[in-house]
Nucleic acid binder design. Structure first.
Length: 924
RNA sequence: AGGCGCGUAGCUCAGUGGGAGAGCGCUACCUUGACACGGUAGAGGUCGGCAGUUCAAUCCUGCCCGUGCCUACCA
């Protein structure tokens, strides 16, 4: 079809014809661009920045869909809306990709040098990075695409430096020796959140430490035998009778006789596990590290950064950790110290990024002191400055913040924000000399210094060997590049910051911080953050900490956590299972509108989504449905006037229904009830507008009395439906809106939302329609259950009280047409032909004479079945009302409701029984 | 180990302290001039089990069974 909406719409909806050109028009017209407008209320959402290496997956699709619904909805409601997009630089992932490319070219980053390597990364980023932005556009995300930001761009980098320096000056960032998670493949430290636990089969291997000057021994168990090379103690529980006498004893290390291994007592030991005695390797195990601190034990690092044994491993030096494990076991076996083995399932820590088994290692890194920040973040939620939805997550939130560890922010990478700490060389030399003098010995650093080594080399030694407070004395944090200004005096820290450090600043760095920009003033705090619960800790908590601390206000008023998208059987999607569903493939097959609507319709907060392609297909059919409904409207006569208050109850009914759904939609979207919103609009459009209203309108259009107001109502109603649906299905609604108004320039996305005040709320019409629909369905049921084809000519008689819509001439044409009747006339139960199909309603009875069409027996059977159900229903209500405590204690309106229902059911029962009697006498 | 969630029609899921719902699938009929990507009618459920609170429980409480996730981690 032509995209020119002035020509009639094609017979069938085809998303391929609609979506790409529509998208292009939005982009060309920059309709999503936002500038602060003091005259309007601000509304701001920041898009959780996807990874620069990433491609769109279902999680992104869901996330973007929900945000876009809110954004489009608020735009239509008159807010000044900014949806801020961007991507993050994904330190490890990106560096890994480029390093792999270099390896294929037979080189590596060290040969290239830092500068050249970074140029290569930028090159990669420009060419292949961030394709996810184009994919987000494709699903219709109405971000302000003029404002796309990157965590490594200059404004963000500036914000990172500023934040770092402020936190440093306040003592909230420090450099210290800690046990960190070392990824020996990516060659970097990882924060606690970046490691995962994988359950694997392993063995608990036992060996003995002989007690010095004694025949005794103490048996320990371990899953990592090679770590015994770094053992400095064996710990037992203080109350453990078995070992009480050995506490304080000295053990002999089989490979390092000069090393003193002492037996200590510590509560952390579980006497039930293994042998109840634990070997202590403070430099390579988190628990041992703590124990080592408590007991003032030395720390012996036995691993290189490649996870091979270092010089402290004596004869095992140079062996890979796993080779060393086998070698250590073999040697201990030879020495007769092996004591057995036990199969065990245990958790192995692996790097989230590289998948490598992580080694706990003692190392000097930069940390954020999280305790004070976490407390403030927690308080912000407690005090209601930020709401977390669903609120079941608050418990998790508090638990995490209560137990938060300091955040390791340095990464031994090149791609990222280089830590803005500059080491003052002159100061360093003074510190080295003073330190050596105080210790009254030559230190490694002072030796290097005296030997005339290069400042960079001496710095390396100093950073490795000097105490933290000494290093701090010659460290300067600065937002200025001191090393560039005074290259002879300053050397910048080589490490970069964790990618999440820059992401933590995102809600305000994207708005211009640390500048006091108009954007920042207008849109901060942002309105709502929508993200997956899987990054509650990684990102949300860190943004909250940084926002509260640096901006003195929370970064967002609401946090909405949504679910994971699973496959159609509820299985988590994974490449290994092969059940990954690619959203772009779905968009190609069914259209972005159908995918979006499906995701919205299936979203109930707090519950995962199992995505079934059949469901998407169904909603694609829905797009086709409204498409064709709109075609019908366009083919109907042009009304003379549009803004009318219709008189006919059918017209008043549909407008009242739209009014009600609009009100509900507003409530639902304000409460993030995406599923209820989508389902409500779906039912309104399909079940009420298409199935009932249009069919009725066809009749009214034939009558000069009602033709014009009906033609107008068809359009007014369709216009409202498109507005209601637009946030969820932007493409097709834009297309139809332009066609409906015959104005290709008018963009629905920039129109206002449905105004309930312009719509009637007509209870009488709603009630009348209900009775009419019930009557029509009754006739259809009689026809259907007696297998009478639609073209079978039938007529019907009715009995109804005065004023019933069944007797209202305004409805009779509709009844005759929709029930496919030749005749529709009043009668009485006495006068009605005995051999009829009947249906009794609360206020009416209908007879469809069936003489000569079917046999009496089949109609008797049908009525008996319906009678049974009516009796059951009656019994239930009677029983209830017979209960005195119900009548006494239940609310009056509930009792009334039951009484009314009983009367109705009684009426239906009586009528049905009477008819059954007459039929039986006929069959008789 | 601790925390959270789920269990409703064949499948995937809504839902509410007071008459059990949708989509898909299934059955029958229908090329009625918006739509067969459609229409009409229908079949199908002890709302996981047991107990409690209540006049009333699919909904609230407790326990149990099944299932999924998160956090922590024992060498």
């Amino acid at each position: 079809m032509s995209s020119d909406p002035t020509t009639p719409l094609d017979a069938a909806y085809d998303h391929h014809q609609i979506e790409p050109p529509r998208l292009q028009r939005w982009l060309d017209a920059r309709v999503f661009h936002a500038e602060p407008d003091p005259a309007r209320e601000p509304y701001c959402i920041i898009l959780p920045p996807p990874n620069v290496t990433g491609a769109l997956h279902m999680g992104h699709a869901l996330n973007a869909t929900l945000q876009d619904i809110l954004v489009r909805y608020h735009r239509m409601r008159g807010y000044c809306v900014l949806w801020q997009p961007g991507i993050d630089h994904a330190g490890i992932a990106t560096q890994t990709i480029v390093e792999r490319q270099l390896a294929e070219e037979g080189t590596n980053r060290h040969e290239l040098g830092r500068e050249t390597f970074l140029e290569r990364v930028w090159q990669w980023k420009e060419q292949s990075g961030g394709r996810i932005i184009e994919q987000l556009k494709r699903i219709g995300a109405s971000c302000d695409w003029d404002r796309v930001r990157f965590t490594m761009d200059e404004p963000s980098s500036r914000a990172v430096r500023e934040a770092f320096v402020r936190l440093w000056d306040e003592g909230l960032i420090y450099r210290g020796e800690r046990l960190i998670n070392w990824d020996p493949v990516s060659h970097t430290a990882l924060s606690d959140l970046e490691v995962e636990y994988e359950e694997r089969d392993g063995e608990l291997w036992e060996f003995a430490y002989p007690v010095q000057d004694s025949d005794h021994e103490i048996v320990v168990a371990t899953t990592r035998p090679e770590t015994m090379l770094g053992d400095v103690a064996v710990a037992v529980h203080p109350d453990d009778e078995r070992y009480r006498e050995l506490i304080g004893a000295r053990l002999r290390h089989p490979f390092f006789p000069e090393r003193e291994i002492i037996v200590i007592a510590d509560d952390a030991v579980d006497p039930e596990f293994g042998t109840g005695a634990v070997k202590i390797t403070p430099a390579h195990d988190p628990t041992d590290f703590d124990i080592g601190h408590r007991h003032g034990l030395p720390m012996i690092n036995i691993l290189t950064l490649d996870a091979t044994i270092n010089e402290n491993g004596g004869p095992f030096q140079g062996l890979d950790r796993y080779a060393a494990r086998e070698e250590v076991k073999a040697r201990l076996r030879e020495l007769g110290l092996e004591r057995g083995t036990e199969a065990i399932r245990h958790n192995v820590t692996v790097s989230q990024r590289s998948g490598a088994v992580v080694e706990p290692m003692i190392s000097r890194q930069y940390f954020v002191r999280t305790a004070p920040l976490a407390e403030a973040a927690q308080k912000a939620v407690q005090d209601g400055q930020t709401d977390i939805l669903p609120d079941s997550w608050i418990k998790t939130w508090n638990h995490f913040l209560d137990n938060i560890q300091d955040w390791c922010i340095s990464r031994q990478l090149w791609w990222g924000h280089r830590i803005p700490v500059f080491y003052d060389i002159q100061e360093m030399e003074r510190v080295i000399r003073e330190h050596a003098a105080a210790k009254r010995e030559r230190t490694e650093a002072s030796i290097a210094l005296e030997a005339g080594a290069s400042p960079a080399y001496v710095l390396g030694v100093a950073l490795r060997t000097l105490p933290d407070d000494a290093v701090r004395r010659f460290s300067r944090a600065s937002t200025e590049d001191l090393a560039a200004q005074e290259p002879d005096r300053y050397i910048q820290e080589a490490d970069v910051l964790d990618t999440w450090f820059s992401s933590a600043l995102w809600p305000f760095s994207t708005l211009g911080w640390p500048e006091e920009t108009q954007d920042l003033d207008y849109w901060y705090p942002t309105s709502t953050l929508i993200t997956g619960f899987d990054i509650l800790f990684f990102w949300v908590a860190r943004m909250m900490m940084m926002g509260v601390h640096l901006m003195h206000d929370v970064p967002f008023r609401h946090v909405v956590l949504h679910a994971i998208v699973r496959d159609e059987h509820g299985e988590k999607m994974s490449k290994t299972k092969g059940n990954v569903i690619d959203p772009l493939e779905l968009i190609n097959d069914w259209g972005a509108d159908a995918l979006r609507f499906t995701l919205a319709a299936m979203t109930t907060l707090g519950r995962d989504i199992s995505l079934d392609r059949k469901r998407i297909e169904g909603y694609r059919h829905f797009a086709n449905k409204i498409w064709n409904a709109c075609r019908f409207v366009l083919r109907s006569p042009e009304p003379e006037r549009l803004n009318i208050d219709p008189v006919h109850p059918l017209n008043r009914w549909i407008l009242s229904e739209i009014r009600e759904v609009t009100q509900k939609t507003i409530e639902r979207l304000d409460q993030y009830q995406f599923g209820a919103y989508a389902q409500g609009v779906y039912q309104l459009i399909w079940d009420r507008y298409c199935d009932w209203y249009i069919e009725g309108a066809k009749v009214l259009l034939q009558d000069p009395e009602t033709a014009d107001e009906t033609a107008a109502t068809l359009r007014v109603a369709m216009d409202a439906l498109l507005r209601l649906l637009h946030p969820a299905m932007p493409y097709v609604t834009e297309e139809l809106f332009a066609a409906l108004h015959g104005d290709p320039e008018r963009l629905l996305g920039l129109e206002s939302f449905v105004d309930v005040d312009t719509l009637p709320s007509d209870e009488e019409s709603i009630g009348a329609f209900g009775i009419v629909a019930e009557a029509i369905q009754a006739v259809r049921t009689i026809r259907g259950e007696n297998n009478l084809p639609p073209n079978q000519r039938l007529s019907a008689l009715y009995e109804a009280p005065e004023g019933s819509p069944l007797a209202d001439p305004r409805w009779t044409g509709i009844i005759r047409q929709l029930a496919r009747l030749d005749g529709w006339a009043p009668t009485t139960s006495e006068a009605a032909p005995a051999f009829s199909g009947t249906a009794a309603g609360a206020t009416f009875q209908i007879w469809v004479p069936l003489e000569g069409l079917i046999d009496v027996a089949s109609e008797i059977e049908r009525l008996e079945k319906s009678l049974q159900q009516t009796r059951k229903e009656l019994e239930r209500t009677q029983k209830k009302l017979a209960n005195p405590s119900f009548v006494e204690r239940a609310p009056q309106e509930v009792v009334e409701e039951q009484r009314r229902r009983m009367a109705e059911t009684q009426e239906i029962l009586t009528r049905t029984e009477a008819q059954l009697e007459r039929l039986r006498s006929l069959a008789g």
